[in-house]
Simulated scan of single mutants.
Amino acid sequence: MRVLFVCSDADVGGAERLLATLARSWSEEDELGLVVLMSRGTLSDDLEAAFSRVTYLDFPPSSRNLPAMVRALEHAITDFAPDVISSHLFHADFVTALARTRVPRVSTMHTHGFGSGDHWLTKVIARAVGALSFRFAAVVPTSDSPAMTTFLRRLRMKHVVTPILNGTMVPTTPSFNTSSRTFVSIARNHPVKGHATLLKAYAAAAPTMPGWRLRVVGAELTIDDPRVQGMIEELDLQPLLDSGALSFDGPTSNPENVLAQSAALVISSLYGETFPLVGLEAAGHGVPVITTDVGNCSHFVDDRRFLVAPGDPDSMRNALSTYAALSDDARAQLSQQARARALRDYDAHAVAERYRTQFRTVVDADTLA
Rank of each mutant, 00 (worst) to 15 (best):
L214I: 02
L214Y: 01
L214P: 00
V216G: 04
V216A: 11
V216I: 13
V216L: 04
V217W: 04
G218T: 04
A219K: 15
E220D: 12
T222P: 00
I223G: 02
D224I: 14
P226G: 03
V228K: 14
V228R: 13
Q229D: 06
G230D: 13
I232N: 12
I232T: 15
I232C: 10
E234P: 06
D236H: 14
D236Q: 13
Q238W: 11
L240K: 14
L240N: 12
L241W: 12
L241T: 15
L241G: 15
D242L: 08
S243D: 08
S243I: 09
G244R: 10
G244K: 10
L246N: 13
S247Y: 07
D249C: 11
D249P: 04
P251K: 01
T252P: 02
T252G: 04
S253Y: 05
S253I: 12
V258N: 04
A260G: 09
Q261W: 07
Q261G: 10
Q261R: 15
S262P: 09
S262V: 14
A263E: 06
A264G: 04
L265Q: 13
V266T: 01
V266M: 02
I267W: 08
S268G: 03
S268N: 02
S269Q: 10
S269L: 08
Y271N: 08
Y271G: 09
G272A: 11
F275E: 07
P276D: 03
P276C: 05
P276M: 03
L277N: 09
L277C: 01
V278D: 04
V278A: 05
V278F: 05
A282T: 06
A282F: 01
G284S: 02
G284T: 01
G286R: 13
G286Q: 07
V287D: 06
V289I: 06
V289C: 05
V289R: 00
V294W: 11
G295E: 02
C297F: 00
C297S: 07
S298A: 15
H299D: 12
F300V: 00
V301N: 02
V301Y: 01
V301D: 02
R304G: 04
R305P: 04
R305Y: 08
R305T: 11
F306N: 08
A309H: 14
P310H: 13
P313R: 00
D314R: 14
D314P: 04
D314I: 15
D314W: 11
S315W: 07
S315E: 06
S315A: 15
L320D: 01
T322Y: 11
Y323M: 05
